[in-house]
């Protein structure tokens, strides 16, 4: 059973292919890291897969669903961490229950349970009644991840969720994603920190100029050759007693 399946998915912008015939499937238990240099098409690929962008060609199982059903299948965390109004953290996280609530209904017990679980998972108990707009950027990111978790979907897609977080929060967030995968969910997350990608993802998808150039376990994807041609960097990598270490070193000219 696959939770995300794309077949020849293409998106063009102004005539140029931004995502070019991408075919892939993601199943339960996978924590997929979507990597690639700026402009490789990571955001476009994810938005088109969900159906937030018109497709130039190809199919996506999610985009084919009616909007309401899709929202119970996939939770999406956009790159822009927008919180428009000074609502409390709890209220903001409760927004994740919108796809599950019958029209006009108040929060039911199961909704409160999902909200509490999301709050506990992201360690936000002490923030519950704080205004979300008054939190720091890193705290807001955690609140928005909790919002996505409260949606309680089989698939979670997040666009650079760890950008701008401190090291502890970055690692904690990636831990949350990999434990979600262990529990049988699927996670697709775009990120620029290749070291964290190598340590926490079960599978990496390397995107370059709109195409998938590599797909597999981190050790197989992050080769010296690809680092040079796709990212223009050299890298150090090693297997240590505390796991894989991957560190980009110098720009290749």
């Amino acid at each position: 059973m696959s939770l995300l399946s794309l077949n020849q998915l293409s998106v063009t912008r102004g005539g140029c292919p931004v995502v070019d015939a991408v075919t892939l499937t993601v199943g339960p238990g996978e924590c997929v890291g979507l990597i690639g240099p700026n402009g490789a098409g990571k955001t476009t690929l994810m938005r088109a897969a969900i159906g937030l962008l018109p497709r130039a060609g190809g199919t996506s199982n999610l985009a084919a669903l009616p909007a309401g059903d899709r929202a119970r299948q996939v939770a999406w965390m956009p790159q822009s961490r927008e919180i428009a109004w000074p609502v409390t953290v709890e209220t903001l996280i409760a927004l994740g229950r919108i796809p599950h609530l019958p029209r006009g209904a108040r929060l039911r017990d199961e909704d409160r349970f999902a909200i509490d679980a999301a709050i506990a998972r992201m360690g936000l108990e002490t923030f519950r009644t704080r205004r979300a707009t008054e939190l720091s950027g890193g705290e807001q990111a955690r609140v928005l991840i909790a919002r996505a978790l409260a949606q309680d979907t089989a698939l979670v897609m997040a666009d650079e969720p760890i950008a701008g977080l401190d090291p502890a929060s970055q690692i904690a967030t990636m831990d949350v994603f990999s434990s979600l995968a262990t529990e049988g969910h699927a996670v697709v997350v775009s990120l620029h920190d290749l070291g964290l990608a190598a340590r926490h993802c079960t599978r990496l998808l390397m995107l370059h100029q709109g195409r998938v150039v590599a797909d597999g376990p981190p050790a197989e994807v992050l080769t010296d050759d690809r680092m040079a041609t796709v990212f223009n960097v050299t890298a150090y990598h090693a297997q240590t007693p505390s796991g894989a270490v991957f560190q980009p070193l110098e720009v290749v000219r």
Binding site: L52, A71, M77, P78, S80, I83, A84, I98, P99
Partner: peptide, 18 residues
């Protein structure tokens, strides 16, 4: 309901089925 969801921005609201 749509306005509540828009607290998360247009992309966030649309992804929640609005």
């Amino acid at each position: 309901r749509g306005l509540e969801a828009l607290t998360l921005g247009e992309d966030g609201a649309e992804a929640m089925g609005i």
